[in-house]
């Protein structure tokens, strides 16, 4: 696409102005984002004598911890994001109705989002304690479990714990994003369909859902990439345990680097994680341009 330039390029000082305006962020990004990524690549391909080696990758890829972490990360992202999208969508539909105190509810929705993850994880740790936490007991009182479950000391339950806490923190956020998408759908489209005789399910299926697809993909993308890098929640709530049951990739890198002091193993894991992220971005980019073409409204 041809750039419509407000200032023709040959105008005096164009380049200088451009450099002046853009270079600060480029400098910051180069030093604090790009350099570390490249440095990690270098670490991952060298040994302590700075000689080239593939051993770091070999060690990781043949061990089981890395694959377990990958699997845990994928599982965590998929499960938590699916729950969040579905519940978030329902919440958004509710919030899109008119009721007393709707604005107050919207404000309340911002609280879980704004809480620091590390701090809310601390709170959840308390709430999930076996003997005095409310969550195990509520489950027991509602006869959902036969006794108050041990959340943080059993692998499966620990995994469920991080999902639960993540859902609590993020559902309101998803709901607000989706609500914005809902509110961007012109009202008269609904009215036109009503006049033509459609019921609520028909409208949801033929109007709301397809017109929400762009907002859904944006929210999904954002959430999935965020969930893939999960660290604070796991570090505070379960510390990756019990055993390694909740050791996602980010905490795994951290553990390798700062607990085991195996910097090069950590770097190799970080490089592969970066590749995962790039892969995800590419997939999402392709999907989005497809969705964009198919459902573009502008």
């Amino acid at each position: 696409m041809a750039m419509q330039s407000v200032n023709p390029k040959h105008e005096k000082g164009y380049l200088l102005a451009l450099i002046g305006f853009v270079s600060p962020i480029v400098v910051f990004f180069t030093i604090f984002q790009i350099y570390p990524l490249i440095k990690n690549v270098w670490f991952s391909f060298t040994n302590i004598h700075n000689n080239f080696t593939l051993n770091n990758f070999y060690a990781i890829l043949t061990g089981s911890s890395f694959w377990q972490s990958t699997w845990i990360t994928v599982k965590f992202s998929l499960i938590s994001v699916s729950f969040e999208m579905v519940i978030g969508f329902i919440f958004a539909l509710l919030l899109n109705q008119e009721f007393h105190g709707r604005k107050a509810v919207r404000t309340i929705f911002l609280i879980p989002w704004a809480l620091p993850t590390a701090i809310m994880a601390t709170g959840w740790k308390f709430m999930l304690q076996h003997s005095y936490g409310p969550i195990p007991w509520i489950l027991y009182w509602l006869h959902i479990t036969q006794s108050p479950p041990y959340f943080l000391s059993m692998p499966k339950m620990a995994f469920a714990s991080i999902i639960m806490a993540d859902i609590w923190k993020t559902v309101p956020f998803c709901a607000l994003l989706l609500l914005a998408g809902l509110q961007a759908i012109p009202r008269d489209l609904y009215e036109a369909m009503e006049v033509d005789g459609a019921g609520w399910f028909f409208k949801l299926r033929k109007l709301t859902f397809p017109l929400m697809l762009p907002a859904i993909t944006v929210t999904l993308t954002f959430r999935f990439l965020q969930a893939f890098g999960v660290f604070d929640l796991i570090w505070v709530l379960t510390n990756g345990g019990p055993g390694n049951a909740t050791m996602a990739l980010s905490p795994f890198i951290y553990q390798q680097t700062f607990n085991w002091l195996d910097v090069r193993a950590g770097a190799a894991t970080a490089v592969i994680t970066s590749i995962y992220i790039i892969g995800l971005v590419v997939v999402i980019w392709i999907t989005r341009s497809y969705v964009g073409r198919r459902y573009a409204t502008q």
Binding site: Q33, I34, N40, S250
Partner: peptide, 20 residues
């Protein structure tokens, strides 16, 4: 590029920063 780089988890670059 800014947006995509923003998605890289901090863990993937924390050690080089620490070293620096």
């Amino acid at each position: 590029l800014l947006l995509i780089l923003g998605f890289f988890p901090a863990a993937t670059m924390i050690f080089p920063l620490y070293e620096m």
